[in-house]
Design a protein around this nucleic acid. Structure first.
Length: 574
RNA sequence: GCGCUCGUAGCUCAGUUGGAUAGAGCAACGGAUUUCUAAUCCGUUGGUCGUGGGUUCGAAUCCCGCCGGGCGCACCA
């Protein structure tokens, strides 16, 4: 480990005077209130409990031996046994100076990088992407970006739904009623129309349903005509996926859909049976979970009585493939919370199947998006909201606001600002709530300039950039000279910036981008306090101006970097 | 019925996993502008953290009961 942040150096210092404590067990974190100090070690409480010591006494004895005079003005024992560190402003200034000189932006790159596979988005072929895909897509992309920024190896894999029983109906419907003109004009809508039509027809007519099953069987047996139609449906869908991902700034390293694993499924079933993990029951093959209370009543079917596999089988095959191909340290699945039970089954089965595998399996689940009425988010006519249309509306609404606030800018410029603000607003609104809670989708809230929103943060960024445009005109650019933090607003801003890496680490550890959202909002708040009280170009000169220019520059960098992790672009002007 | 999950200010929500006096935004009211971009800022009002017990130095957070939402319980994915 390389300890290059203040908080890390404090951890090392405290650990050094604690016999047989590891650095990992001594957490130092930002103080809850600035008036107490800058950093706080409160893990001593836990250690005291383990050792049956009085926590205040332990803290006092640590303090007696502790040598942090190079970093701190003073260290206090407070409350029931916290150690509060007041960091020297010179030590903070030194950190800023290092970052100004091109050092890492208040974060540590991982010394031993982990390989993390992220499975997210997973849209279905022949169907439009809708709001239901946005959280998975945006959360997954953000987690991948955060992992990479911290130096880890993130592998993104889009497990698209390109196989399964729906294709029997789709093939039958396609053969009966495909409209080539409509298909050319808007392939997704035409395929959606076909599916809805044939689905209704199958519900009404048992014989048709049987025909659909035959079409599926033919596809699975490798029938040339059905394969060709199936491939065409995939190709048409991929055009849609690519368009949306490009708009959202999302990239996948791999797109290995369900069909990719199809040839492996019989073998997976065989292996599970051979290992004694699955057994025949009512003509099907199932995995039982008698020792897992919440799964006891629900064995997982891995082969239906008609011989076909299920998505449980596919997911197990996928897991096996990912282990063999990438040997990841962790696999993260980003899906709706309604699939919790499914993933519990998958993970439980996998652990029995490969008990020696050290991989961490994480189901990162999220809640639903609700309309203003508190019910699942739908259009006025009750349809699911299509993602492409949602993004269009975001840009249109942002364009109206940009045009109102900034009527003199060219239409082209306003369009570009509206694109960044509109898409940013949607993404930010999606990542701001705790992912496990449902949230109410509100255009007015996400596009507001007050409060914790993307437009607010983007505006804060443009204000800083405005200072630099002025500074450049006046020939006042940062020279890399010595810095000194004096005003309380300068110190508060600097202190908060130093915590950027800690927050990113928390985002990665808990898979919660909302920590980063709140951090950036607070950063903007501290910057505002600084901006209102500390003139940069007007009154300041010498070291004072140099320091303030550096604070502006670094705040802008952290804001831009943080927004980039969230998948949000920045703009120079609004 | 079983399981998962949630209940925090009038509204929408944070609360980094057990830490100090529970925080924002909106709404309401009162202020600040010939600006470093007012798409801004400052202030005031507002809470028995659903409820009753328990665990301990310490609970919104952990455990148990109850009340009330949401979701899941297919040989669909």
């Amino acid at each position: 480990m390389i300890y290059n942040t203040i908080e890390q150096r404090l951890r090392v210092a405290v650990t050094a005077v604690l016999p047989d404590a590891s650095v990992d067990s001594v957490l130092v974190r930002p103080c809850p209130e600035a008036k107490f100090g800058d950093y706080q070690a409160n893990a001593l409480m836990g250690l005291a409990k383990e050792r049956k010591m009085n926590p205040r006494q332990l803290a006092t004895s640590v303090l007696e031996k502790l040598d942090v005079t190079d970093l701190c003005d003073k260290v206090d024992v407070a409350g029931p046994g916290f150690l509060n560190f007041r960091v020297k402003s010179a030590a903070m200034a030194a950190e800023l100076q290092e970052a100004m000189a091109g050092g890492p932006l208040f974060l540590m790159k991982a010394v031993s990088p982990r390989t993390v596979v992220l499975d997210f988005s997973s849209p279905n072929v022949a169907k439009p992407m809708h709001v239901g895909h946005i959280r998975s897509t945006i959360l997954g992309e953000c987690l991948a970006r955060a992992q990479r920024l911290l130096g880890h190896h993130a592998i993104t894999d889009n497990h698209i739904g390109d196989w399964g029983t729906a294709f029997g109906k789709l093939l039958l419907g396609w053969k009966r009623e495909v409209n080539r003109e409509a298909l050319q004009r808007d392939p997704i809508s035409e395929m959606e129309r076909i599916y809805k039509s044939i689905n209704a027809a199958c519900d009404a007519d048992e014989a048709l349903y049987e025909q659909a099953r035959l079409e599926l069987a033919k596809l699975q047996a490798g029938d040339a005509e059905n394969l060709a139609i199936w491939r065409e449906m995939i190709a048409l869908s991929e055009v849609q996926f690519d368009t949306i991902y490009k708009r959202l700034g999302v990239k996948f390293d791999h797109t290995l859909g369900e069909s990719f694993y199809n040839p492996r499924l019989p073998e997976v079933v065989q292996k599970l049976v051979a290992a004694g993990l699955a057994k025949e029951s009512d003509g099907a093959i199932k995995v039982f979970f008698d020792d897992v209370p919440e799964l006891k009543e629900h064995p997982a079917v891995i082969q239906k009585s008609d011989g076909a596999a299920t998505y449980t089988t596919t997911d197990l095959a996928t897991l096996e493939y990912r282990m063999a191909t990438w040997s990841p340290d962790e696999i993260v699945y980003v899906t709706d919370g309604r699939q919790q039970q499914h993933f519990k089954e998958i993970f439980t089965t996998f652990r029995r199947w490969m008990p020696d595998a050290k991989v961490k399996l994480t189901h990162v689940w999220f809640g639903s998006i609700l309309g203003e009425d508190g019910k699942p988010f739908k259009t006025r006519s009750g349809e699911t909201v299509k993602l492409a249309e949602l993004l269009d509306e975001a840009e249109e609404r942002a364009f109206r606001v940009v045009s109102e606030k900034n009527p003199t800018a060219s239409e082209e410029e306003r369009k570009e600002i509206a694109r960044i603000v509109g898409l940013g607003a949607v993404k930010y609104a999606d990542m701001l709530p705790n992912r496990q809670s449902d949230y109410v989708f509100s255009w007015d809230k996400m596009l507001a300039f007050n409060g914790n929103t993307a437009p607010y943060l983007l505006y804060a960024y443009t204000r800083i950039r405005g200072i630099f445009r002025k500074a450049q005109e006046a020939g006042q650019t940062p020279s890399g000279g010595k810095l000194a933090l004096v005003a309380p607003q300068e110190i508060a801003l600097a202190r908060h910036m130093l915590n950027f890496g800690l927050v990113l680490q928390a985002v990665v550890d808990d898979c919660r981008p909302n920590y980063l959202c709140n951090y950036l909002y607070e950063l903007a708040g501290y910057f505002t306090g600084f901006y209102e009280n500390c003139p940069v170009l007007k009154a300041a000169e010498g070291v004072e101006r140099e320091t303030r220019l550096a604070l502006c520059m670094l705040t802008a960098q952290v804001l831009r970097q943080g927004l980039e992790v969230l998948g949000i672009e920045t703009t120079e002007k609004m």
